[in-house]
């Protein structure tokens, strides 16, 4: 079997990294596709995301220009499929433009919280001891407040604007992400391959990169995807309460707030932004569930 003692093989196999990644991805997508609801949700979510991104091209009207003579049109009115609002602006166009901000406010805080909370959790879990106590107990302070109250408090302090919503929600999401990451790291740290890596003299950084992160990634990732829908609802909620995006900016929460005035005149139109918030949140949850199942994470 062993041909020479130089550490070379007579016929070294070509190590194709892409092929390796490919097979893992294939396995993942095969399992995901088997999950019908998640797959359909992904398609629906994809349609929503793509159409909001393409809003400037596909939106039939300017979202900020309305004809006051044409206000409060019902669903299916001529030229305005989803009707018009109290200023005569086309609701479909506003939904498409508003989705950009709403979805952004759903995803960006989770990304930020995933990065910051994830790193804090990994440090706390890996180093343990004093570092763990300092990080985790500090984050526990945030748990003392209900999430929505904390978000309201922070955004009230920071003032209006989409950037402040994102900051506020990110802060709300950092502690739970850190907690998930910390408990996952603590579990992985007990495995013998970590000890084995330490006996080879590996540096902490490499152990974290190759042994810890790779093993906790899917758990933290799946948790984060489930948080996107909550973040989206939270952001819309803040805007609805007047703490986030200010009118006339198109954003689903703001639109819901504006349209609530006409609930007795035109109830179906009122519901539209809420419906979009609901569908987006639902599809995101279904897709996240699909990810979790496809990655075989026990909960």
């Amino acid at each position: 079997m062993i041909t020479e003692n130089t550490g070379q093989l007579s016929n070294p196999v070509i190590l194709n990294k892409e092929e390796k990644e490919d097979s893992r991805f294939k396995e993942f997508s095969r399992r995901f596709l088997k999950n019908r609801p998640a797959f359909l949700a992904l398609i629906l979510l994809g349609i929503i995301v793509i159409s909001t991104i393409m809003a400037p091209i596909i939106a039939p009207y300017d979202p900020y220009e309305g004809e006051i003579t044409n206000r409060l049109q019902v669903i299916g009115a001529e030229g305005h499929i989803l009707g018009t609002d109290e200023q005569g602006r086309d609701i479909l166009s506003r939904i498409l433009y508003g989705g950009q901000l709403s979805l952004l406010a759903g995803i960006v805080p989770v990304l930020i919280a995933g990065l910051i909370g994830g790193s804090l959790g990994v440090m706390a879990g890996y180093f343990g001891g004093m570092i763990n106590t300092i990080i985790m107990r500090t984050l526990d302070i945030f748990y003392a407040f209900p999430a929505i109250l904390l978000a309201i408090g922070i955004s009230a302090a920071l003032g209006q604007g989409i950037d402040n919503i994102i900051i506020a929600i990110s802060i709300v999401f950092i502690p739970p992400v850190a907690r998930i990451a910390e408990s996952a790291v603590k579990e992985v740290r007990e495995e013998e391959f970590i000890e084995a890596a330490r006996t080879t003299g590996a540096k902490n950084f490499s152990i974290i990169r190759y042994h810890i992160l790779m093993n906790i990634f899917s758990r933290v990732f799946v948790y984060c995807t489930t948080q996107i829908s909550i973040s989206l609802v939270l952001a819309s909620g803040l805007s609805f309460l007047g703490l986030g995006v200010s009118p006339p900016t198109a954003e689903w929460g703001v639109m819901l707030n504006n349209l609530k005035e006409q609930i007795f005149i035109n109830p179906l139109v009122t519901v539209i932004p809420g419906l979009f918030i609901f569908i987006s949140a639902l599809t995101i949850n279904l897709v996240a569930d699909g990810f979790r199942d496809a990655l075989e994470i026990k909960q």
């Binding site: 013998e192 391959f193 080879t200 042994h211 790779m214």
Partner: peptide, 15 residues
Amino acid sequence: QMVFQNPYSSINPKL
């Protein structure tokens, strides 16, 4: 160098 007890825990499943 050391060989550990549990082969299910001593090699990294993600590598």
